[in-house]
Design a protein around this nucleic acid. Structure first.
Length: 319
DNA sequence: AATCGTCCCAACCGCTTATGC
DNA sequence: TGCATAAGCGGTTGGGACGAT
């Protein structure tokens, strides 16, 4: 197909020569790129405008980061892909210096294979083998076997409503990223490497935990409830073998991001410490709770879990 | 050394969305 | 409002690099 912008020109295709690169860079640094369609003519290039634009954005732009992806970048891609799917341009926005094309290629050549080798469906991020999904005999650890982080689910965060109410219905309804609607104004999801418990705080509904264990086969001895509020449940420890992997957010250095995360984690710990907890026996305090652990399981299985609130907010608002 | 197969990535294709008139 | 054009985007392809045989 010949692009409309260059249908009347004799255009060259294929790999760019160093001379062509130089012409393009020289022209753009001098004149900018207001109109890609007319740029080749003025720059003395026998390329179509579209080809020039792609060459510039994917390869010649001075702010591009060259070289292989870091493990941190890889984790960011996986995390965002879990939420957004193949929206490479959106994903690339969270990786300064990387292009959508680069992210896409990296995904197709490396990450995809890695996930498959780990037994994960690269599209859904769920386990490939169907029998693993029988929740009746899973415990939290099994459900969460592919997650390396400790998480706190809490609604004690300002603007939590905004965060989740802004998620589009498509996300809420997509099986691969199941995020129960009941949660959208109730919870925020934060990582917490300091906690050795998964903490679920529900704001509005009194707890009715009677169905929790039966529905999700969670060991009741691993469930604790705070003694001064009816709306907190602690769930058993999840894997914390690996270091928490950071993510970036625009406008802040990695150090600042980590600092912010630590603050949030500390805040979460304080809230929990202040609330205290009481031990629960099998079927004891659970009886009066209506908290739906099936929903929790959905969240965990969907692994719709972000690495910090700013990051989540940013994602949510950027849809 | 030659051939083959695989991997990776730059570039292309074609559809969608944005913009200007 | 409707049309034409430009730009954005995701999927796909082609070919060079490289390792295995």
């Amino acid at each position: 197909m010949v692009h409309r912008c260059c249908s009347k020109q004799k255009i060259k295709r294929g790999l760019w020569s160093p001379e062509e690169d130089e012409k393009l860079v020289t022209y753009i640094t001098t004149h900018g790129h207001k109109s890609w369609s007319s740029l080749p003519k003025f720059a003395g290039l026998q390329r179509c405008g579209k080809s020039c634009r792609l060459r510039w954005t994917n390869y010649l732009r001075p702010d591009l980061k060259r070289g292989s992806f870091t493990s941190e970048e890889e984790q960011i891609i996986i995390d965002i892909h879990r939420i957004l799917g193949n929206r490479w341009a959106q994903i690339a926005k969270h990786l300064p210096g990387r292009t959508d094309n680069e992210v896409k290629n990296f995904w197709n050549s490396c990450i995809k294979k890695k996930l498959i080798s780990q037994g994960l469906d690269p599209q859904t991020h769920n386990l490939l083998s169907p029998h693993k999904r029988s929740s009746k005999h899973n415990n939290i650890s099994n459900i969460h076997q592919n997650s390396n982080s400790i998480f706190i689910l809490t609604s004690q965060i300002p603007n939590a409503d905004q965060t989740f109410s802004s998620l589009p219905n498509t996300i809420l309804q997509t099986p691969t990223t199941v995020f129960p609607k009941q949660f959208q104004t109730s919870f925020n999801v934060l990582p917490n490497k300091h906690l050795d418990q998964l903490c679920v705080v529900e704001q509005e509904q009194p707890q009715n935990i009677s169905n929790i264990c039966s529905n999700s086969c969670i060991d009741p001895s691993n469930v604790e409830m705070s003694n001064n509020t009816e709306n907190i449940i602690w769930v058993s420890r999840v894997n914390d073998d690996d270091d928490f992997r950071g993510s970036t957010c625009e406008g802040g250095t990695q150090a600042e991001v980590h600092q912010e995360k630590d603050k949030i984690c500390e805040k979460g710990n304080e809230v929990i410490d202040n609330m205290g907890s009481i031990e629960m026996n099998d079927g004891d305090c659970l009886e009066n709770s209506n908290f739906d652990f099936g929903l929790l399981e959905s969240v965990l299985n969907s692994e719709f879990i972000s690495h910090d609130l700013d990051y989540m907010d940013e994602l949510a608002w950027n849809f």
